[in-house]
Design a protein around this nucleic acid. Sequence first.
DNA 1: AGCGTTATGTTACCCAGCATACATATGATT
DNA 2: AATCATATGTATGCTGGGTAACATAACGCT
Lengths: 238, 238
Amino acid sequence: MLESLSPQQNHLLATLPDDVKQRLFPSLEAVTLPLGEVLQQSGKTTHYAYFPTTCIVSLVYELQSGHSAEISLVGNDGMVGIALFMGGQTAVGKGLVQVAGEAFRIDEALFLEEFERHAGLMHHVLLYTQALMTQMAQTAVCNRHHSVQQQLCRWLLMSLDRLSSNQLVMTHDLIASMLGVRREGVTEAAGKLHRLGAINYHRGRIEVIDRAKLEQLSCECYAVVRNEISRLLPGGPS
Amino acid sequence: MLESLSPQQNHLLATLPDDVKQRLFPSLEAVTLPLGEVLQQSGKTTHYAYFPTTCIVSLVYELQSGHSAEISLVGNDGMVGIALFMGGQTAVGKGLVQVAGEAFRIDEALFLEEFERHAGLMHHVLLYTQALMTQMAQTAVCNRHHSVQQQLCRWLLMSLDRLSSNQLVMTHDLIASMLGVRREGVTEAAGKLHRLGAINYHRGRIEVIDRAKLEQLSCECYAVVRNEISRLLPGGPS
DNA sequence: AGCGTTATGTTACCCAGCATACATATGATT
DNA sequence: AATCATATGTATGCTGGGTAACATAACGCT
């Protein structure tokens, strides 16, 4: 597991200018993040920036009623904690570990020092922020206009892109809380996708067996976001 | 009309550090924006940053199907064109003039020069960007969980905050395209609000007569966004 | 005044997704 | 093997918002 643990596994870190890497990498700390860990709370201050390598973090927005919806997904393509440099002190959305795994983190003060002093880091993370905003905007429209099944396809594809396998450890219930729909709705949609031969699943594990079919059944939102991410942050996985 | 035309009417400009104002204000150009004008196109490059004073601009995201939804509203509390300094060259969402009026604009190159050279502008617009992200996130969740009537209340309140009167020149059709719902749905919700004594309306004009009632019927999203904006950008209207 | 355009009102029907309730099945634990 | 917690399957009924079609009313123009 540990043999390949390197900051370069995170594409945002990997594509930093060399001089920034040299100053920043020694301060990175490897952490193992379990399922359900909360990296940031909406409205609370944070003290680390996280760069996932093998974990996936979901940014979730919660209503007073307890209802919620995911506004973006962060894997080895990005970072959690942009609020650090935006200046408002507090995070937009709750950062919830969706798939357990590894990440690197850096202390707030060290990150900010580099951000303020050398524009290289700033330009890089602002580009990522723009990608994040695209995700958020697309999610907003998707929530309005697309069906649960379309969104499930989108979500599976987005998660798959941030993993190295085609297996996902994930219950219907958890997916439902991400999409902001009922668990039964996810079960129903997953059942359809199974009957169509796109996925298999069993008790907390989902296996994608026909990715092309998922892409075909998904709404446009998946492709739009993926293309925008690879345009803004070239050198990424896709 | 012109007697009070000053950049200070835009709160983002008004709260800039003095030295930034001195360098930036001479380059500002006053423009009159008619209803329907498109300030930026999704995916296209822009060459100006706009600072509304009496107009309101809506950031709208469009799907291939032609369906759309507003992801945020910009009035004299903010700016249009954050893509300029995010680095991706292209805008997130279409910037559509929703309420005709005045704005100041500045050339891309001049804005960027100040952004890169003096951190004062940068910190200021990054704070605004965070407020924008809060709006987008809240909109995403609102689209998922709240009724048309709740959203109409929210939208009216948000628009009202960015105007000096309690009258809004706006058809049901236009509101529907902002909220991403049918025109009939807006007509129905507006009818209810009228019967409840909250608003009057007539052929493209909406008058709010009981603001407190609107706030009571609105979803929490209005207050959450307003509070976050005034926290991040103190000295604003509210 | 008459005309066409635009804004709003209204109806009928349909369906996705909601709330609720409960059944079943699989793994983990003892 | 028995038990329990968890994950998934299914059914009922309801409702908000969708589609579609059309009626009415107000203003702008000639």
